[in-house]
């Protein structure tokens, strides 16, 4: 039995990723590949993919954007470029926003034109810039 939480630690990036992963689970490589394919077929996972380091790729500005907006704007905002995550959250009276997005930009100008788009849609928002990632992913 392989747990999704174990796979989320990442598969070894080596000469033989699935062979080395099979060793971790004490099974044969062909058994592991069969299990992983079964997990995909059952819809437990969609696929494997690489998570890239956005800072390394040149993204210099990241921010959490807290927003309130009319329902008709939700779809438009979700589809804006730069947004990677979008959550609806229960409103807290000490920080009364319902929608939260993570957005990444190559530079300040991109953030500026992004805010301009939100202004044009008359969205009430607050930009909380990322100063530092406090939880660096362990390799």
């Amino acid at each position: 039995m392989i747990k999704i939480s174990d796979l989320r630690k990442g598969i070894p990036i080596s000469n033989d990723p699935y062979g080395d992963l099979a060793k971790i689970f004490s099974m044969r490589k062909d058994e592991l590949i069969k299990i992983l394919n079964d997990m995909v077929n059952k819809g437990q996972i969609i696929k494997f993919r690489a998570l890239l380091d956005h800072e390394k790729l040149g993204y210099r500005v990241s921010a959490l954007i807290a927003m309130n907006m009319d329902d008709e704007n939700i779809e438009k905002v979700i589809n804006l470029a730069h947004i990677t995550h979008f959550y609806v959250r229960e409103k807290n009276e000490k920080f009364p926003y319902s929608y939260f997005a993570m957005a990444h930009f190559f530079n300040e100008d991109e953030l500026k034109s992004f805010s301009k788009k939100l202004d044009e849609m008359h969205i009430n928002y607050e930009i909380l810039r990322t100063v530092k990632n406090l939880k660096n992913d362990v390799k």
């Binding site: 630690k9 598969i11 990036i13 690489a50 390394k56 920080f95």
Partner: peptide
């Protein structure tokens, strides 16, 4: 990977798995 461009290789999770868990943002 050694240069840090690739953080890790992980499963893309299904919606049903994501929705099984409660989540919160804490400030």
């Amino acid at each position: 990977y050694n240069l840090g461009y690739i953080k890790k290789i992980i499963p893309k999770l299904s919606k049903s798995y994501i929705e099984k868990y409660e989540r919160a943002l804490v400030a």
